[in-house]
């Protein structure tokens, strides 16, 4: 009912422009993300560096990828943990 009224009064709830904009936004996320495998590789190496401060991880089994579903793109990382590291002193004080 509301939608009907909205349409009668010309509100933008069903505006096709918004559909276009949303589709464009998504397609560009894919396009821009899909540009370089090097970028993913760099990201992966940075991730290893940061996570290694806290955990002992299996670097060779680490996987990073962009997964796309219908309405979103997700950065998915699979990081096998071998063990926890003892928290370094400088970090322990701030926790």
């Amino acid at each position: 009912m509301f939608e009907f009224l909205a349409r009668v009064f010309g509100r933008e709830t069903t505006a096709s422009k918004n559909v276009a904009k949303e589709r464009l936004r998504l397609v560009l996320v894919h396009d821009r993300a899909g540009v370089s495998p090097q970028l993913l590789e760099t990201l992966k190496n940075e991730l290893i560096k940061v996570i290694s401060n806290y955990m002992d991880i299996d670097e060779k089994a680490l996987e990073v990828s962009l997964e796309t579903s219908e309405d979103q793109v997700a950065l998915v990382a699979s990081i096998p943990v071998r063990g926890m590291k003892r928290i370094p002193k400088e970090l322990a004080s701030s926790i």
Partner: peptide
């Protein structure tokens, strides 16, 4: 068409 919300307008495109 832009006014009726049926075509992307200038701001929409510049935004993107």
């Amino acid at each position: 068409m832009v006014r009726h919300g049926d075509m992307m307008g200038i701001e929409d495109i510049i935004d993107i």
